[in-house]
Design a protein around this nucleic acid. Structure first.
Length: 160
DNA sequence: GCCAACGTTGGC
DNA sequence: GCCAACGTTGGC
């Protein structure tokens, strides 16, 4: 199957691309997703070898900063069973997990971060979910064309 | 800090 | 099953 492409949002205050870069093996489990649409993608759609754009939301500025690779496909998010976790879900049953993660490994830092305003005005990114109004999904599909275009923009000089 | 957009919950 | 109330996300 062809490699597919995704975009994951993270608040850098919580877990930045630098944090991932410094993590053991530059790898982390993408835990804490508590939205069913995103869960379905993590559990069913996102495959080993897929590529992920790492996006900093709720940041100043909001930027795409790096590329990661999926190194482990959907498996249960253990934080749902941990009462001490912020992501604890009292309704999740052992043996019948409700929430899933994939593991991602940081692969490349972009030449430069590409900001949300740039993505909005860039040519060739029509229909990108990230720039749609009201699009809050924290795990989003990205078309191969859009993915390539964003990497290309990162190679270009920043526009003021 | 505000608030629009959207998702979830729960009463009926 | 409807929908109002509430909670969260995330841009501004």
């Amino acid at each position: 199957m062809a490699t597919r492409h995704w975009l994951f949002k993270s608040e850098p205050e919580v877990f930045s691309f630098d944090d991932l870069w410094k993590a053991k093996g530059r790898t982390t489990s993408w835990d804490g997703v508590r939205n069913y649409q995103a869960r379905n993608l993590l559990r069913d759609e996102i495959k080993k070898g897929d590529l992920v754009l790492y996006y900093h939301s709720n940041a100043d500025p909001q930027v795409v900063v790096g590329v990661c690779e999926v190194v482990k496909e959907g498996h249960p998010d253990l934080t749902q069973f941990d009462p001490k976790s912020d992501h604890y879900d009292p309704d999740a049953e052992e043996g019948n997990p409700r929430w899933y993660v994939v593991d991602i490994k940081a692969r490349d830092r972009l030449e430069r971060p590409v900001s949300l305003p740039e993505l909005k005005v860039a040519k060739g990114l029509d229909g990108l979910m990230l720039t749609k109004k009201g699009s809050r999904l924290s795990v989003q599909p990205v078309s191969p064309e859009h993915f390539a275009r964003i990497l290309e923009i990162a190679q270009e000089k920043p526009k003021k």
